[in-house]
Lab assay of single mutants.
Amino acid sequence: DEEIEKWIETLLKRNISLRVNGKDLEIGSEEFKEWVEKFIKEV
């Protein structure tokens, strides 16, 4: 979905790490990609 890709790009540009389930996810890491894929499937 384009919306999500733009959102991810924005996050990448800002180099933010997300806190997911109490863990810091490094943007661009494998864990982050897995989380994004799960997130996309749920939406």
Results as ranks from 00 to 15, higher is better:
Glu2Ala: 12
Val20Ile: 09
Glu9Arg: 11
Gly22Pro: 02
Glu3Thr: 11
Asn21Gly: 04
Lys41Asn: 05
Glu9Lys: 11
Lys41Glu: 03
Arg14Gln: 09
Glu42Phe: 15
Glu42Ile: 13
Trp7Asp: 00
Asp24Val: 14
Gly22Leu: 08
Glu9Asp: 06
Leu25Asp: 02
Leu12Phe: 07
Thr10Cys: 15
Trp7His: 00
Phe39Gly: 00
Phe32Arg: 00
Lys13Ala: 09
Glu34Gln: 13
Lys33Glu: 03
Phe32Asn: 00
Val20His: 04
Leu18Pro: 02
Phe32Trp: 09
Thr10Lys: 09
Glu34Gly: 09
Ser17Tyr: 04
Leu18Trp: 05
Glu37Met: 15
Val43Pro: 04
Gly22Tyr: 07
Ile16Asp: 02
Glu5Trp: 15
Arg14Phe: 14
Glu31Asn: 06
Gly28Ser: 04
Val20Asn: 02
Gly28Tyr: 05
Phe39Trp: 12
Leu11Ile: 07
Lys23Gly: 02
Asn15Phe: 15
Glu3Cys: 15
Arg19Met: 05
Lys13Leu: 13
Glu3His: 10
Lys23Gln: 07
Lys38His: 07
Glu42Trp: 15
Leu18Cys: 13
Ile16Cys: 15
Trp7Tyr: 04
Lys38Ile: 05
Glu5Gln: 14
Gly22Thr: 02
Glu5Gly: 07
Lys13Gln: 08
Glu42Ser: 12
Thr10Gly: 05
Asn21Arg: 08
Ser29Arg: 03
Leu12Gln: 02
Val43Lys: 07
Val20Arg: 05
Phe39Thr: 03
Lys33Ala: 07
Trp35Phe: 07
Glu30Gly: 06
Gly22Asn: 05
Glu9Tyr: 10
Ile8Gln: 01
Glu42Met: 15
Glu37His: 13
Glu34His: 13
Trp7Val: 02
Ile16Met: 03
Glu30Trp: 12
Asp1Lys: 13
Ile4His: 04
Trp35Arg: 01
Val36Ser: 01
Asp24Phe: 12
Leu12Asp: 00
Glu42Lys: 12
Lys23Thr: 05
Ser29Asp: 03
Ile16Trp: 01
Lys38Glu: 05
Glu3Trp: 15
Phe39His: 04
Glu34Asn: 12
Ile40Ala: 04
Trp35Asp: 00
Glu30Met: 12
Trp35Gly: 00
Lys6His: 09
Val36Leu: 14
Glu26Ser: 08
Leu25Asn: 02
Asp24Ala: 09
Ile16Gln: 06
Glu9Met: 13
Ile4Gly: 02
Ser29Cys: 09
Ile40Phe: 11
Asn21Trp: 06
Lys23Ile: 11
Ser17Gly: 05
Glu26Ala: 10
Lys38Leu: 07
Lys38Arg: 12
Ser17Gln: 10
Ile4Lys: 04
Glu26Lys: 10
Thr10Val: 07
Arg14Asn: 11
Phe39Asn: 02
Asn15Arg: 15
Val36Ile: 13
Lys13Asp: 05
Ile4Asp: 02
Glu31Thr: 04
Glu37Ala: 15
Val36His: 01
Trp35Pro: 00
Ile40Thr: 03
Lys33Phe: 14
Lys13His: 05
Arg14His: 12
Ile40Glu: 01
Ile16Leu: 02
Ile27Ala: 06
Glu42Ala: 13
Ser29Glu: 02
Leu12Cys: 09
Asp1Gly: 11
Ser29Tyr: 06
Leu11Gly: 00
Glu30Thr: 10
Glu26Gln: 10
Trp7Thr: 01
Leu25Ala: 03
Ser17Met: 08
Leu11Val: 05
Asn15Ala: 15
Glu2His: 10
Gly22His: 02
Ile40Val: 07
Phe32Ile: 03
Glu34Ser: 13
Val36Asp: 00
Glu30Arg: 10
Gly28Asn: 07
Ile8Val: 05
Ser17Glu: 04
Glu31Met: 12
Val36Pro: 00
